[in-house]
């Protein structure tokens, strides 16, 4: 597949913006300006970029608590995402969601779900509605390797396959479920792909650090979904540069393994590729400078935003906007 240059630049732009955003999120967490927890996708940006850039605007994406990348790359405004991480009034979820629940429905980013596996049936349900209403939408569901051992994975894959739903399940296999190697807790090599045959699906493994390769499988899976041929299950091999969450140093991972994967940084790989394709270095420098400025601006805007209005505490439980349970 020949990938157009504007697509490639969009993927590079997306990866760089996600990288800078999450590096800043980490710094802010260490400074105590982001509270609670964060689960960073540093190192996994090519998966987010490849799938996001191949989507249509009205496609729906569902992700996990490791969902900053995915939400940002659907087009959610960085200011509002940073504000949400920092618990400020400019937060995209009114500061009621936090890092693990970033959502921008207006951009098709249908939510970040923090209980492992819970969003797989939800993504399938959105695809079912698309199928019934004939909307041509695809529902894309990102999850980690650890998710493949929870019941909702099986229930959702089976149902999606039986009903031929236009949903694409994307397993980001970063080799560790949390602190434990996924290979310690499964009986097969590939946590997702090796289970695909149980649902009558093809087991697809892709290099998740190669944005072009990811983009190509995404396009094929979306075409299949829109053609009414049913779901896909794709396992993208990747690696997180940081620990599981918060300040976890990830010491359970062998140094050589970490070094090996750091050499395969998806952004470095892609920068080299774009240069080899004749893209001017200045063009890439410009993308990087713009992303850095955007992150700085989002940080400043969020630092300067007031804390949430106490009134929002009691809003949005019900569709009437309130939280009353009685008359």
């Amino acid at each position: 597949m020949e990938i157009a240059l504007d697509i490639r630049l969009a993927m590079y732009d997306g990866m760089v913006r996600a990288r800078y955003f999450e590096k800043r999120a980490y710094d802010l967490f260490m400074q105590g300006l982001v509270k609670g927890t964060t689960h960073l996708g540093l190192g996994q940006e090519a998966v987010a970029a490849g799938f996001a850039v191949a989507m249509q605007p009205d496609d729906m994406s569902y992700c996990t608590y490791r969902g900053h990348n995915h939400t940002l790359l659907r087009g959610a405004p960085m200011n509002a995402l940073m504000g949400e991480l920092m618990g400020r009034s400019n937060g995209i979820c009114e500061a009621k969601g936090g890092s693990m629940h970033l959502t921008d429905v207006s951009k098709g980013a249908m939510g970040s779900y923090a209980i492992v596996g819970a969003h797989l049936p939800v993504a399938a349900g959105a695809a079912w509605a698309a199928q019934l209403r004939g909307t041509d939408q695809v529902s894309v569901c990102f999850f980690g390797d650890g998710t493949t051992n929870i019941g909702a994975f099986h229930e959702s894959l089976n149902m999606a396959a039986v009903w031929d739903l236009p949903v694409v399940f994307v397993c980001e296999n970063n080799l560790y479920m949390e602190y434990t190697a996924i290979s310690d807790v499964i009986a097969v090599e590939h946590p997702a792909a090796d289970r695909a045959s149980a649902y009558g699906l093809e087991g697809i493994v892709v290099d998740g650090n190669d944005a072009d390769a990811v983009y190509e499988v995404a396009v094929a899976a979306y075409q299949r979904a829109r053609a009414g041929e049913g779901p896909s299950l794709i396992e993208a091999l990747t690696y997180r540069h940081k620990g599981h969450s918060r300040a976890d140093p990830g010491k359970y991972r062998p140094d050589e393994e970490v070094e090996e994967w750091l050499k395969r940084d998806p952004i470095d790989i892609y920068r080299e590729r774009l240069l080899s394709l004749g893209v001017e270095p200045a063009k890439l420098d410009e993308i990087e400078a713009k992303a850095a400025a955007e992150v700085d601006a989002a940080t400043e805007a969020s630092k300067n935003a007031p804390p949430p209005d106490p009134a929002v505490l009691l809003t949005d439980v019900w569709a009437d906007g309130g939280s009353s349970w009685r008359n």
Binding site: V105, W128, S139
Partner: peptide, 21 residues
């Protein structure tokens, strides 16, 4: 199928995309 998580999860997703399941 006998899949209560799928039943409840799918009606949630369907409700997010225009159905009243």
């Amino acid at each position: 199928p006998i899949s209560e998580e799928a039943i409840t999860g799918m009606i949630m997703g369907a409700a997010m995309n225009g159905l009243i399941p």
